[in-house]
């Protein structure tokens, strides 16, 4: 059985439903999968998650979580999913321990009962258990929020942008924790604006302006990228980008780390490109073949 089934789901806001946040989305997530919804701000990730967690009613389409319809059986879903909203949503004036105990009671369970599930995460914040949640660092808040979302051993876990605004080290740790949870058989849906986190998911859906552009494993998504990408750098990166985009053989060029990723048209010639760039006055030129990344796929899908 699929853990999450989304079928032509749509959501609009505003009096006249003029803001279309989610447009006829369909995808499925298997049991035990770590599924990433990747998309920039305003893509509609939060709206999608809120519909799946029964917080918002869809305008059209339907969705089921662990076999329960998000509209008709919303009460069932509320018992068995875990949800961590994008904003830190715990009580800042309660201590770490009090927050955890509170969320355990509202799910009719106790911290002891499911301690094994959160143990790995909780031990890291346990030394601060009497500290007020508002006084924790970003990374620790996130661990506490995750512990609270897990305390009732949910079958599906929804994490809305859990790593936004968290430092790089904590982000890495967080994905490690998700891997562990996956091994416990929990289906995890996670949304993120960071493309570099795509590779850490089993499968991803690329989302943009309310639509899912593509769904697949990271390898499938990058594998669908047929054109050649060259990584190009020189002593004057700004001028270089202009020159690249002005070239007839270049499909698209954009900065990517210390290189400019340059998508080439078919039948291009590397030497001709090099001569052209040198002629334009670029020095210390490096041109090398590069593997497409999820971000490259995303850039391409967005242009279509």
């Amino acid at each position: 059985m699929q853990s999450v089934i989304v079928n032509n789901l749509s959501k609009s806001y505003g009096k006249k439903k003029e803001i279309k946040a989610v447009k006829e989305i369909s995808f499925e997530v298997s049991k035990g999968e770590l599924f990433g919804i990747i998309g920039p701000d305003g893509a509609g990730k939060t709206s999608l998650f809120r519909m799946l967690t029964t917080l918002l009613l869809p305008d059209a389409g339907n969705a089921a979580v662990d076999g329960s319809d998000v509209v008709k059986n919303y009460k069932d879903i509320r018992k068995k999913v875990g949800y961590m909203p994008g904003r830190f949503s715990l009580y800042q004036d309660l201590s770490v321990e009090e927050n955890l105990n509170f969320f355990a009671t509202i799910f009719n369970t106790t911290v002891q009962h499911n301690y094994d599930l959160i143990k790995d995460i909780y031990v890291q914040i346990e030394p601060f258990k009497t500290r007020k949640a508002g006084k924790l660092s970003g990374g620790m808040k996130q661990k506490l929020a995750l512990s609270c979302a897990l305390i009732h051993r949910p079958v599906v876990l929804f994490l809305d942008e859990p790593t936004t605004g968290v430092d790089a080290v904590s982000r890495k740790e967080f994905w490690e924790m998700l891997k562990h949870l996956k091994q416990q058989g929990i289906t995890i849906l996670v949304s993120t604006p960071y493309m570099d986190e795509a590779g850490l998911c089993d499968r991803i859906g690329l989302m943009q302006q309310g639509k899912i552009l593509s769904v697949g494993t990271p390898a499938e998504i990058t594998g669908a990228f047929k054109e050649t990408i060259l990584g190009v750098k020189s002593n004057n990166m700004y001028q270089l980008l202009k020159d690249l985009n002005a070239n007839d053989e270049v499909e698209d060029a954009y900065s990517f780390g210390e290189y400019h990723h340059t998508v080439m048209k078919p039948n291009f010639n590397k030497e001709t490109l090099q001569q052209y760039l040198e002629q334009k006055g670029n020095k210390e030129l490096v041109i090398q073949n590069t593997q497409p990344t999820v971000e490259d796929s995303f850039m391409q899908l967005m242009k279509q």
Binding site: K75, S89, I106, A149
Partner: peptide
């Protein structure tokens, strides 16, 4: 406003 209602609604309470 602080979002805790959101979390509580997604619970059996």
């Amino acid at each position: 406003e602080i979002g805790t209602m959101e979390v509580m609604l997604v619970s059996p309470v």
